Computed example of a mutant assay.
Amino acid sequence: MNLTSRTGDVRRGTVGPLLGRAAAAEWGELWAAVGGRLARRRLAAVPLALTATLLVLLFDLVQQLPGGAGFVERVGVVRAGLPLELELLRTPLSLFVPALDLPVWGALAQVLVVFAVAEIVLGRPLALFVAYAGTVAGTLYARVAVDVGPGGFLGLPATDALVRDAGPSAAVVALAICAAWRARAWFTGAAVVALMGTEAAVLPNLAGLEHLAAIAAAVLIAALGEVFGGYWSRVLALARAATETVRTASGAAAR
């Protein structure tokens, strides 16, 4: 593409490098971390993402079988009208129960890609925690919103107490936000927030509002990690150094 300068000169090939620099600034750190790990370890680098994807596929296959929908309902489907303890008991598996009215390939692709990126960028334990926290945030929001009712702020009608929760999508949204924050991919994170906000505004249903709750949980986790993450790593480093010093001193005294 050609761009004409103020002097009237035609400068060729300026848009490509600009876009390349913008992409490198936005995704360079993310690509280096993810691409490097996958190049070294292949699929062994993302066991959490593979397990999550297989569980989504398994639950989808089971709920298509005769009697399978009832089984999935009992072990992994969460609704705001259920007792709280039952909701929380089912929530870990609800991460992997796909919606019945949406094509499962979309859920599989989202879970595989976003879980894999988050697993590498955040680390496996934190990625699992963020996925669970995003799902729990959506679940608890739905209960409160139904109690508030449609007349209150972000309230929901009583009929939504019978609607299935967002399933793996709430976890995917939370992971996308935290991974983008960690990799400093600010425009990508903002795009996810804008997309979910638009969805909730245009289609104000339970799933869309649960996604906003998952975003709020993810932003809180990312902000806390920003504030306290370095502090705890320094504390652990000091503790390890102190332990090593004591062990060395003890060994010298024993000799």
Results as ranks from 00 to 15, higher is better:
A158R: 13
I177F: 00
G152C: 07
T159V: 14
L238Q: 14
D147Q: 13
A191C: 11
R182H: 07
R143M: 03
A158Y: 05
R234W: 06
M196I: 12
A171T: 05
V172N: 10
D147A: 14
P168E: 13
A179K: 09
V163W: 04
L224F: 13
C178P: 00
A190Y: 04
Y141Q: 02
L206D: 04
A161N: 01
M196H: 02
L224Q: 11
L154D: 09
A218K: 12
L195Q: 03
L162R: 12
R182E: 15
G230N: 09
A239P: 02
W186H: 07
L206W: 01
L156Y: 03
D165V: 00
V148K: 08
A237R: 15
V148R: 15
V173D: 02
H211G: 01
L220E: 07
A239F: 08
A166C: 08
A185Y: 03
L236M: 10
V144Y: 10
V193M: 11
G189Q: 06
V192F: 04
A194N: 01
A185M: 04
W181R: 15
G149R: 06
G151Y: 04
L238H: 11
A166N: 03
V235C: 12
A237E: 15
A194D: 03
A180D: 02
L162F: 12
G197Q: 03
R143T: 04
G152T: 09
A213R: 00
A223M: 00
A180K: 01
N205G: 12
W186P: 01
P204G: 04
A174M: 08
V192P: 00
P157L: 02
S169R: 04
E199L: 14
T159K: 14
G225A: 12
L212P: 06
R184S: 08
W186N: 06
V202W: 11
A166Y: 01
F228V: 07
L156I: 02
P168D: 11
F228D: 03
G225H: 10
H211F: 08
A213E: 11
A201W: 12
T159Y: 12
A213F: 07
L195A: 15
S169T: 14
P157R: 02
W232Q: 08
V192Y: 03
V202C: 02
D160S: 13
S169V: 14
V219E: 07
A223F: 12
T188G: 12
A200S: 15
F228A: 15
